[in-house]
Computed example of a mutant assay.
Amino acid sequence: MRRECYLPVAAALLFGSMAVAAQAATIQITTTDLVFAPSEVSARVGDTIEWINKDVLAHTATARNGDFDVMMPPKKTVTSVLKKAGTIEYYCRFHPNMKAVLTVAP
């Protein structure tokens, strides 16, 4: 192999090792005493939301724009993966005073 051929190969190896994909995160949102906590969350597409219902009542996390509608049985944890970027206002269909915002970056 000629010496000129080594430079592109070395550059490809160097830049390839620098382009490590970001790991998806798991974000916990808890319902306690008829409140989503935290009430404002930032996440990325591909992250997993762990919806933890600590109440003795069932709740939902229902996106006003229709992106998701998660059912949370009492004292249970359910998960969902974020598929779209945007700012999503959501609420509980059973307790409409429960409101929160999820901001999803690409």
Rank of each mutant, 00 (worst) to 15 (best):
R3K: 10
R3E: 12
L7K: 09
V9N: 05
V9H: 08
A12G: 06
L14F: 15
L14H: 05
L14T: 03
F15V: 07
F15G: 10
A19P: 00
V20K: 09
V20A: 15
A21I: 02
A22E: 00
A22C: 06
A24M: 06
A24C: 01
T26E: 14
T26N: 14
Q28D: 03
T31Y: 02
T32K: 10
V35D: 09
F36N: 03
S39C: 10
E40A: 13
E40V: 12
E40Y: 15
V41I: 14
S42A: 13
S42K: 05
A43C: 05
A43M: 03
A43D: 00
V45R: 05
G46Y: 04
G46C: 04
I49T: 01
I49S: 00
E50S: 07
N53I: 01
N53H: 10
K54S: 08
K54W: 02
D55L: 06
V56Y: 07
A58V: 07
A58I: 03
H59G: 10
T62L: 06
T62K: 14
A63P: 00
R64P: 01
G66R: 07
D67Y: 08
F68D: 02
F68S: 12
D69I: 05
M71E: 09
M72P: 09
T77S: 10
V78K: 04
T79Q: 13
Y90R: 02
Y90F: 15
C92W: 02
R93N: 13
R93F: 06
F94P: 04
M98L: 12
M98S: 05
A100E: 10
V101S: 12
V101D: 12
V101A: 11
L102S: 04
L102F: 01
T103P: 01
V104G: 05
V104R: 10
V104L: 04
A105S: 11
